[in-house]
């Protein structure tokens, strides 16, 4: 264990450590805490210049209520859900298959295809922007959720394949060989043997892709335009222009927009971290 466990050090060191921890955390989250504080203030606090004192009244329900009932926020949130969930399902399904093919079979070009997926996953989005936008427009999918979903599925398949293939590589290969000796068809091996073993990888990728897609902004502004299809990351800018300089509402709005992936993270922490470290750091 490194550094030296605090339990083996002096009592004074232990007390300092335990009391410095919360302080360090507050410093670390300071910008966010400020926004949290803003979001429960009444408007009058801002006009009176009371930015950092105690809120003169606690307006949590009022402010967040207005976000939900007096703006397009619920629509944007719902769009985000309708874009994110199908993307997660699509990308994970496709990459289960590609990962299986690349992880189990030896054939010419295996490594080449695998590296194509990895390399594609690293490219700057901007080099795809003009052609992908063009493709989406000519398919009649500009400013639709489907247009965004199709692109996201394709792009995320790169990252997901990397993850799935490495995960499948680490599975006991004897299981598959034994099944082959028994004469089990290849697709049955996939469905009945490999897929059940992939559950942790599927969980990890699902939370991770959920977060990536929910937080996407670039493609949202390239491929969509209005409240019919735009997800919440893009919608928040129009929300902010609706409530210009009303910091209490803008703060509440951004907290609402940020919340779903945060909730996802706290619920599925273990899977999330396994996914982030690409399974490479055990």
């Amino acid at each position: 264990m490194f550094p030296k466990p605090i339990q083996k050090q002096s009592r004074a060191a232990q007390i300092t450590y335990q009391s410095l921890l919360p302080l360090a955390l507050i410093m670390w989250l300071l910008p966010l805490l400020a926004v949290g504080l803003f979001s429960v203030r009444p408007l009058s606090d801002f006009t009176n210049g009371n930015y950092w004192g105690m809120p003169s009244s606690f307006e949590f329900f009022n402010n967040y209520g207005r976000v939900f009932f007096e703006s397009d926020m619920p629509r944007y949130l719902w769009n985000s859900v309708l874009i994110t969930v199908p993307t997660v399902v699509g990308a994970v399904a496709l990459s289960c298959m590609t990962g299986f093919a690349l992880g189990i079979y030896r054939f010419k070009g295996n490594l080449l295809i695998f590296f194509m997926f990895i390399a594609g996953n690293f490219v700057p989005f901007q080099i795809l922007m003009v052609p992908v936008r063009d493709l989406t427009v000519s398919a009649g999918l500009y400013d639709t959720k489907l247009g965004l979903i199709l692109f996201h599925v394709a792009f995320q398949t790169g990252f997901c394949t990397l993850f799935m293939r490495n995960f499948i590589r680490a599975l006991p290969f004897e299981l598959i060989e034994a099944a082959r000796v028994e004469g089990v068809a290849e697709w049955r091996i996939f469905w009945y043997i490999v897929l059940p073993l992939m559950r942790p990888a599927i969980a990890a990728l699902s939370v991770l892709v959920f977060t990536f897609i929910w937080n996407d902004y670039f493609w949202a502004i390239v491929l969509t335009q209005g409240p019919d299809a735009q997800p919440v990351t893009a919608g928040i800018t129009s929300f902010n222009s609706q409530f210009v300089a009303q910091y209490h509402l803008m703060s509440a709005g951004s907290i609402v927009a940020a919340l779903p992936p945060v909730a996802m993270f706290f619920m599925m922490q273990r899977h999330f971290i396994a996914g982030l470290t690409l399974g490479a750091v055990k």
């Binding site: 496709l94 590609t98 054939f107 594609g120 080099i127 052609p131 493709l135 792009f155 790169g158």
Partner: peptide, 25 residues
């Protein structure tokens, strides 16, 4: 089958990826 199966499994993923990522580059 040891060549065909992986190709079939790869096909949808590759099609998507080539159309939306590789070709646009």
């Amino acid at each position: 089958r040891m060549t065909i199966t992986p190709l079939l499994f790869l096909l949808p993923g590759i099609l998507f990826f080539v159309a939306y990522v590789v070709f646009p580059i």
